[in-house]
Design a protein around this nucleic acid. Sequence first.
DNA 1: TGTACATCAGTGAACGCGCGTTCACTGATGTAC
DNA 2: TGTACATCAGTGAACGCGCGTTCACTGATGTAC
Lengths: 221, 221
Amino acid sequence: MPPAPPPSPAIALGRKSVISREDVIAAALKLLGPHRSVSSLSLREVAREAGIAPNSFYRQFRDMDELAVALIDLAGSSLRQIIGDARQRARTNRSVVRGSVEAFMQQLTSNDPSLHILLREGSVGSDAFKQAVDRQLNFFEEELKTDLVRLAAANHTELYEPALTAKAITRLVFAMGATAMDLPSDQLPVLKAQLIIMVRMILTGTRTLATNPKELQADLP
Amino acid sequence: MPPAPPPSPAIALGRKSVISREDVIAAALKLLGPHRSVSSLSLREVAREAGIAPNSFYRQFRDMDELAVALIDLAGSSLRQIIGDARQRARTNRSVVRGSVEAFMQQLTSNDPSLHILLREGSVGSDAFKQAVDRQLNFFEEELKTDLVRLAAANHTELYEPALTAKAITRLVFAMGATAMDLPSDQLPVLKAQLIIMVRMILTGTRTLATNPKELQADLP
DNA sequence: TGTACATCAGTGAACGCGCGTTCACTGATGTAC
DNA sequence: TGTACATCAGTGAACGCGCGTTCACTGATGTAC
């Protein structure tokens, strides 16, 4: 087995490292795109792109799974940053829902593969893999929940189960995003409009249930 | 290139066929399961399981993609049958939402790989592949929409955009199902309860919006 | 400062493997008469 | 009915390929004195 990736924890001897984890990650990101999934990358391919021997990959990562998790974590935090900014900006404007969804959809059509990584790898690959995506989604839910609670308080509104609301919205938006990824770009505006209405359905439902919880028992439909 | 899969359209001559498409499909289904995705199957592996030469695969399918699409279509229609039955039964009982979600979750824990196929392959594989999954999801949405409209009429309720409602519910349920697939089974009841509430949020929202569409303009949260 | 030495980042070559696909072939099943 | 023949479903062997991983090695960089 190759030596553990964080190479010498104690004292640094020998040659100075010239390859970094970041170089390998950058190479992998260059290979990814709207039509390429992390799980379809091969070790040799990434090494080739990074300009190193296939062998040298092991100095930075234990295996491809470890690289994939690093990519997912990176994509998640970068995306949360972007969406967070968008929500911040939108707060001063008319609609937070519209603003956030628009930022999300715009990210989808950009060259940044972050969102594509999260959308694609949720249902495929190793367990560590899927757990990494799930962890990132949980971060999104958490931030959204915080935002929902704050906004509700500011508007003197109440929400039924804000955590579940945030989860429903997050999962729905990501699911729709995964569909949108493969759509011709002229159909995206339609999907965006649909998504906004869907999110508002959930929010309206949450608000209604908060003031009128017996709706929850309403049997049909 | 091997001859086109529907072998001789005109007159049947030569040997009688002893391998059928169904044999190959059955072999593939045997290999699939909660931890095995269609896209991870290899041609040789399926042929091995079917007890035929790798070569002979080509007599039935052009390539693995064609087999995958057949599997997806099969899974979709089998699953719609199951959920349809459940809804039918539930209609006479208390709650259609609960009944349907329960049928869905039960299917998730069964040995039938149909649902797993649809859940996993939505975001991976070739285009033909993803289109096949999307087509099946559209069928689900269509049936759900019909049901929603009928039930709403029976209850003298109105719905805002039933088609979008059906789409939101379908996508959300499948997204949550994909998560559930990898969960230890003791956590499934929690997730099921959450899912039921989420679906009711959407339904409550739709009902509220139908009678009070100015909620749609409500800016926040 | 200079010298001897230890470390270890990175490499080149090779391994065995399972893959998809092609080829030329066999022989059972059907048709023609 | 029997015989000659055409068809083509299914096969066995082989191909070249890219893969992940291992091995023994090199030589630049640091430390000790």
